[in-house]
């Protein structure tokens, strides 16, 4: 056997390390890894959130999808703040009924609220939404700055507040409803349930396969991230960081190609000829009809109330 080189023998002391200047941080890498692991966790979790029981959990995902999408669509049609508030209340009630964990609601709703509040803050001002001033923030006093005409005042308007309230209530209701759908169903069931919305079988099959292989490719990406974290103690600079990401993406793509070829072979080996045939879904029980009817009723009531009030 070839003798070990000196530097590979135990106890060999490497020469003094020249400290490198400005080292970037590993924060982006860690953040990427965290997002990735969160997604992976949602996909393959068999955690306590999934084992909880409840009316919504036992309902057929097709019914849930129909009901959920109907309520989301209605939320985007409502104008009045009262009706929008009612739809948010309904969404939160459904989340409670579906025993969605409070942490999960808070996380999803918090992120949405933060974004919409941030985006809507300028919309409350009279420069975007004209109206009766409620609170004057600044008085530039007109005049002009280069080609731009400056407004006389910058003030929060009543109309602006109404606009912002409407947006915040609506986006919150939509996000909560979408969360109820996702948190009370297993991902593969939810995608399979799309057949009830008229999505063709082949599309449903590809969607479920996407979900299936997302877990596999995410694990590959996770390994790449971990291997990188294991070998570096700091950032490696923009250029190399970009090159690393590109190489990682390239490696995942190669995996994508090989897997696609092998899956194709596996499908053909079991008789696939190009025509997608899925297992016949179970028949609807009374619970499913009830759920869809209740959602339709609630949607109609919200819309009627909103249009009546407006």
């Amino acid at each position: 056997m070839t003798p070990l080189p000196e530097w590979l023998r135990p106890g060999f002391a490497p020469g003094a390390v020249k400290p490198r200047g400005r080292r970037g941080s590993l924060r982006p890498l860690r953040r990427g890894l965290a997002t990735l692991e969160a997604v992976l966790g949602t996909l393959v979790s068999a955690g306590p959130d999934d084992r909880r029981d409840g009316f919504l959990r036992n309902a057929d995902p097709r019914a849930k999808l129909l009901a959920g999408v109907a309520l989301i669509v209605v939320a985007t049609l409502l104008h009045g703040v009262a009706a929008l508030g009612a739809s948010l209340a309904l969404a939160l009630a459904l989340a409670a009924a579906g025993r969605v964990r409070a942490v999960r609601i808070a996380a999803a709703l918090g992120a949405s609220l933060a974004l919409t509040t941030l985006v809507m803050a300028p919309a409350t001002l009279d420069v975007v939404t004209p109206g009766t001033p409620v609170l004057t923030l600044a008085r530039p006093g007109g005049g002009s700055l280069g080609p731009f005409r400056l407004p006389a005042t910058v003030a929060v308007t009543g109309a602006g507040l109404a606009v912002a309230a409407r947006m915040i209530l609506r986006t919150s209701a939509c996000v909560t409803l979408a969360l109820v759908l996702a948190a009370t169903s297993r991902p593969q069931e939810l995608l399979a349930g799309l057949r009830a919305l008229g999505v063709p079988q082949a599309f449903v099959m590809v969607l479920t396969m996407t979900e299936r292989y997302l877990a596999v490719l995410l694990r590959a990406a996770q390994e790449l991230h971990l291997a990188r974290l294991a070998r570096t103690i700091g950032g490696i600079g923009f250029r190399r960081e970009e090159a690393w990401a590109a190489a990682g993406i390239g490696a995942v793509f190669r995996r994508t190609r090989t897997l696609a070829d092998n899956v194709t072979l596996a499908m053909i080996a079991r008789g696939f000829t190009g025509e997608v045939r899925l297992l016949r879904p179970p028949r609807w029980r009374r619970r499913e009809w009830l759920l869809v009817a209740a959602a339709a009723l609630a949607a109609a009531a919200l819309l009627a109330a909103d249009r009546g009030l407006a």
Binding site: L214, L217, V252, A260, T264, V276
Partner: peptide, 10 residues
């Protein structure tokens, strides 16, 4: 089918 699903996951 598999290629589209894998490409979407990618």
């Amino acid at each position: 089918l598999p290629l589209m699903a894998l490409a979407a996951a990618f």
